[in-house]
Design a protein around this nucleic acid. Structure first.
Lengths: 136, 136
DNA sequence: ACATAAAAGGATAAATAATGTCTTTTAGGG
DNA sequence: CCCTAAAAGACATTATTTATCCTTTTATGT
């Protein structure tokens, strides 16, 4: 339970790597995949999701590849994770309160809500910039 | 990602119900299952896990059933969840740091560690007593 | 225009995990 | 000895995760 999937792990590895590259040089997906040791086809799907919401910018054709969509300090770990895993919902009743009404009011609900807030708070407090800096 | 499974949800429902029953009367599994709307065979597995670690006491045969293993105020939501879901590990690198050594030191690791602490902290702060009281 | 490069998108397959059932075994009470 | 009820293990089903492959679209250079 409560475990990041491979997809999420790969997503972080990939975008952190990209964030650590020179800003003006587009990165080939295949190069990123090799560098962070992720199946290229899988990473492609992940970067497509990033691209849709603007976390990265993509360029097709010769000389194409990927650039970070915004400065690394403006991208939080929460955004990266939610981009590929969907919203952080420790229990489905938090996502869909309607399903919580099994027998009136559910007193566990506020606890899960609190868990959700804490997780989001931690992940939101970390930017790609910080993740890159330490590794240099 | 990060979502409680049905098993965890059922586990909470079941033991909270038990905690709300008179202390000295053993509860039939079938009655609990009916009350909290969970498949009886599935709930049986869950209560077996509870029993092994003493969260509940079980009695076989005629007049048998289940009792809470300790006073409700001494059982935390964390214990209940971990009993059936295993330890709270938001990323496998937190459970097995060895796998984190992909390329030297992983700078995301401390973040997941922090997430783990926060989740555990919230769940540890809630006892079955509190969950029962509100519902009355 | 044409050939090439690279991402986008869709369909599908394999592996793993979640969910649930069934049957047999063990223990206790009458 | 017989009935009840939980324990334990094997099995079945479904859903999700983790990929892979193939075609299409878009861009660049010649």
């Amino acid at each position: 339970m409560m475990e990041l999937t491979r997809k999420g792990e790969y997503a972080i590895r990939g975008i952190v790597y990209l964030a650590g590259r020179p800003l003006d040089k587009v990165c080939l997906l295949s190069d990123i995949a090799t560098a962070v040791d992720v199946p290229p086809t899988f990473l492609a799907k992940i970067f497509q999701q990033f691209s849709k919401i603007g976390l990265v910018k993509s360029f097709r054709g010769t000389g194409g590849g990927f650039l970070l969509g915004r400065p690394a300090e403006n991208i939080t770990l929460l955004e990266v994770v939610e981009a590929v895993e969907g919203p952080i919902v420790p229990n489905r009743c938090v996502a869909a309160p309607a399903e919580c009404e099994r027998s009136g009011y559910c007193n566990v609900h506020p606890v899960w809500r609190q868990v959700q807030l804490e997780i989001k708070s931690v992940l939101e407090g970390v930017s790609l910039r910080e993740l890159v800096e330490n590794s240099k």
